[in-house]
Design a protein around this nucleic acid. Sequence first.
DNA 1: CGTGATGCTGAACTCATGTTCAATACATTA
DNA 2: TAATGTATTGAACATGAGTTCAGCATCACG
Lengths: 224, 224
Amino acid sequence: MSSASRGDLTTRARIRDGAVECFAREGFSVSVRTIAEHAGISPGLVIHHFGSKARLREECDTHVRGVITEVKTQTFEGASGTFMLQQMAEIEHYAPVLGYVLRSLQSGGALAAEFFELMVEDVERFMAVGVEAGTVAPSRDPAARARYLTSSSLGSLMLHTTLHHPGTEPDFGRVMQEWIEAYMLPALESYTEPVLIDRTLLDTYIAHADGGADAEGSAGADAD
Amino acid sequence: MSSASRGDLTTRARIRDGAVECFAREGFSVSVRTIAEHAGISPGLVIHHFGSKARLREECDTHVRGVITEVKTQTFEGASGTFMLQQMAEIEHYAPVLGYVLRSLQSGGALAAEFFELMVEDVERFMAVGVEAGTVAPSRDPAARARYLTSSSLGSLMLHTTLHHPGTEPDFGRVMQEWIEAYMLPALESYTEPVLIDRTLLDTYIAHADGGADAEGSAGADAD
DNA sequence: CGTGATGCTGAACTCATGTTCAATACATTA
DNA sequence: TAATGTATTGAACATGAGTTCAGCATCACG
């Protein structure tokens, strides 16, 4: 917050911040009038400053993008993505940004894809550290595993949000809390003690994939 | 016309089926005019038959609900939910229904919650069979594990859909194919060979949960 | 044949939305 | 002080949405 100078806290920025909040709370179909009312101004002024609702949306995207990278650099570099999410949810100030990202993830779009890739990178790095330390098992395809883990947890969080808090603004801190409470134990259990005792499925798939699939897998990491 | 000329294949049903298709392809914000055009009729007739767009939507929900239960009873009872999804995606005829369910899952609502619960039940039963057969490890909380597995895979599928096929109609067969190709290996690997070698996380969480699970969950906000 | 009921249309109505625009208030400066 | 440019408003416009309605067509039934 302190990094953004007071020169940025102009009306434009106030509208932008309010818009991020509205988008997070009511989704991207929120009306310009609602955004204007939330900022205590007239609808016309929103257009006067941003040209159109679409451009306002773009500006919100870039602003959220900036906040994310800022938080990422502030946070200890080795922290996992989910930890980052948790931390952000706990700090009330970041709730609109987190909500905005969640909405983006639901709607698709450039920001969503970027955010996903960012998290994948984080997870992959985090897992690599774990492998190095001996606490995490190496994978046949670390990149694919990172994507899988990211997609699973993020998708599960999204699903939990839409199913249990439809429509209006969800308290994302509470959503995260509920989500953790519901899934932390089975997740840890599944990741610690193998769910599948029988190796047949895995071996069969590997054999099948070796036969007629791409040989793109970077098997260079840890051939154990 | 084919079989049910007087039975179900009336104009009402034709509109309903077309609406399911439109909802699946363009989302629930698709216009009544589009639905009417898709059925080759006038917009007014849609309202004449269903009263309002909301009631048409409800009727689509119940119809999809019916198709799902029908497929579920037809399919071998022990089949897993994901297998059911795969099977449905492969049969072109069910593509609109699957798309409709996906859209519901993205938007939230009653049908989405019901469908999720249905899949959870299936997964739990399927896992129980596996445990009985000795191919699946037992869980401390089978119900929670079933919810977790369902939420992860379904959420991941949703996320993959929104990220890689935004907006217009995705070919759900292809989406499933891509999704399987991207995540099957790491998923099987993670479920067969434990990701976490170190048991500390699991044991710590269990101890922590046993101690103060009922008291507001994690107290991480204050003590860090 | 006539009568009514139902299926169906096309235009019009209502409403919310994004956007435009002329007019006004304000602030800065010559 | 006068001027000029920016911030801001309130009303109006255009559009697309869901819905209504009066009327035409079609068909069963007496």
